[in-house]
Write a protein that binds this DNA or RNA. Structure first.
Lengths: 328, 328
DNA sequence: TTTTCTGTGTCAATCGTTTGACATAAATTA
DNA sequence: TAATTTATGTCAAACGATTGACACAGAAAA
């Protein structure tokens, strides 16, 4: 059995109230007593029961993270960064992979709300889950398009799309193709797409578009991309995510196209892993450190009711990493 | 404020004891009462406080997952699979990225032990953390080389190494190079390496070896691999993980080597993502579904004290996926 | 008709910690 | 010296649910 407050008190030769005071740092306490208590706690390897504490309104130090799935490199990286920041504040993260399944997300929400977590960070793209409105739990979201009062942090998707278009055209592209991967398909108005199209049209060109069906396998995506490269003969492609861009580059090579001479490619996301293992891929990079920082900061703001006026939306700047898939 | 047992009882017009009986399915209960209670629970959106329940020895339905970091695709995939299985059993997963930092792992362990989780699955490679011995919490481990009583599930690393060697030599390799990535470096006796070397030597050949320094960046790994390919002139490489194998193939191409004509490559792990986005890479595939199944099964066995005699080690068979990086 | 089973209620203790009220004594300051 | 501050203790009521003991009534079985 775990040692309890009583055991610590006995070993330290003080009252339970004093031990509780030490733990919660309340009232007057001498250094010597504190030391005695800490020593006893260390000796017994005591950890206060968070269940008992939670009953008194103390926090569980637990945050729920709801994301589509951590096998996507960009999600893995955000989640890992968030987890690290939470850890540094003494919080743990419950990982909830919604797998784009609204039912699972709903169930997870209900589980999280059973007053076990202190807050939620969601980056899942399932819309219209009423459970989000049914709780007073602090929630912040990443890259969602909520219409409610949950603060959202996201990259400048619109600007990123524009930047991709501008870059490709500046480097001589005449026939632009946009390939939208599945990740964002559920979002009604995808800013990456509209930003790109806008910028292309502003320059007097007309972009082609390929929408990869939601949740299609990489094999299907490959086939679709392959077809499209054959038929549309683009000289530049903007993919709304890096994974799709990788497929695109591979299919292009299979078709004997030289990159960037025959085809320029720009992706989106810029996760460290993808960058490191695909050294030629140019991409619009999301500022993941800033995103993780801000998400956690906003959450703790609400958690501690610091009353700081929070915006509904925070849009963080992206930048282009230019590598061999676009012309010098 | 969240509704509590009392509120449900009042709304359903029954006593709190009855509600508790319904929730915990104890004693005699009529269908009509059950229905009334369920209806009231649904109506109030009631969830019993897990804090209060935990005080009575009930489980938190929380499992801690300790892994190096989820940005590694193979880890991401195991974790995602484990998470899904836990979810199906009504459990949630706390994700703990040790980042190969023993201090962080130690702190996480202590946090998890503060009777918040019901069990732990660890796949972290930090050795000699005494905290693992300090708890009665059910623990199972993935791919670790513990000397203690924690059951371990792993792939047949030794057999996989052998299989790689056998395959490469059968296909005509004469000058074999082994590149060990950083992931396993901390393990005293790396079975993938010994299996490979043994099988090479059995066939009368002498393997070269390159050890990539622990925690070195992909850039450093690239440079090391590049050098080694230049100097050792291997005609076949076995990399102890897929990510290293990808770097190796890329560096080989930079050197103008044709794969598989000039150089054959086999990796290890076979995560879905890596396979899908590196269609030429041959690899020894870990049976991740089986691993996740078994880990969760073993954990619940210990959780429910089913007394089933558990082995110390479970070694699951691997298989080779042969693609364009080895000869036909 | 008596006994047993079924369904529900009341009451109170329990889980481990927090917290407020109050008491007391020593150390410090006015 | 008196008043205040500091340091600790005792006691008991929460927190929200579980559970055992016991009671009682109606239904079913003997």
């Amino acid at each position: 059995m775990q040692p309890k407050l009583d055991d610590v008190a006995k070993l330290a030769g003080v009252s339970t109230t004093t031990v509780s005071r030490v733990i919660n740092d309340r009232g007057y306490l001498s250094e010597t007593t504190k030391e005695k208590v800490y020593k006893a706690m260390r000796h017994l390897n005591y950890q206060p029961s968070s269940a008992a504490r939670a009953l008194h309104g103390k926090q569980f130090k637990l945050i729920g993270l709801i994301f589509a799935g951590i096998t996507n490199p960009i999600i893995a990286e955000v989640v890992e960064k968030i987890e690290d920041r939470l850890f540094n504040k003494g919080y743990k993260a419950i990982i909830c992979n919604s797998l784009d399944n609204p039912d699972k997300e709903r169930q997870y929400l209900r589980m999280l709300m059973a007053n076990q977590v202190d807050g939620i960070i969601t980056g899942s793209h399932n819309e219209g889950i009423k459970e989000y409105g049914m709780t007073e739990l602090p929630i912040v979201s990443y890259d969602r398009y909520f219409k409610d009062k949950i603060p959202t942090v996201r990259s400048d998707n619109y600007g990123g799309g524009q930047l991709a278009a501008k870059t490709l055209i500046d480097k001589g592209a005449k026939k632009l193709l946009l390939i939208s991967g599945s990740i964002d398909v559920q979002m009604p108005n995808n800013d990456r797409i509209t930003g790109f199209n806008k910028a292309v049209e502003e320059r007097g060109l007309t972009p082609q578009t390929v929408e990869l069906p939601f949740n299609s396998t990489p094999a299907i995506k490959r086939a679709t991309i392959h077809q499209s490269l054959l038929i549309d003969h683009p000289d530049a492609v903007f993919c709304t995510d890096d994974l799709t861009a990788i497929l695109c580059m591979q299919e292009a090579k299979k078709l004997g196209l030289k990159i960037p001479a025959d085809l320029q490619v720009i992706g989106f996301d810029g996760s460290t892993n993808v960058q490191e293992y695909n050294p030629d891929l140019s991409t619009i990079v999301q500022p993941l450190d800033d995103i993780a920082d801000l998400l956690v900061r906003l959450l703790f703001n609400r958690l501690n009711d610091e009353g700081e006026n929070l915006l509904d939306e925070y849009t963080l700047p992206v930048k282009l990493i230019q590598r061999a898939s676009v012309r010098k």
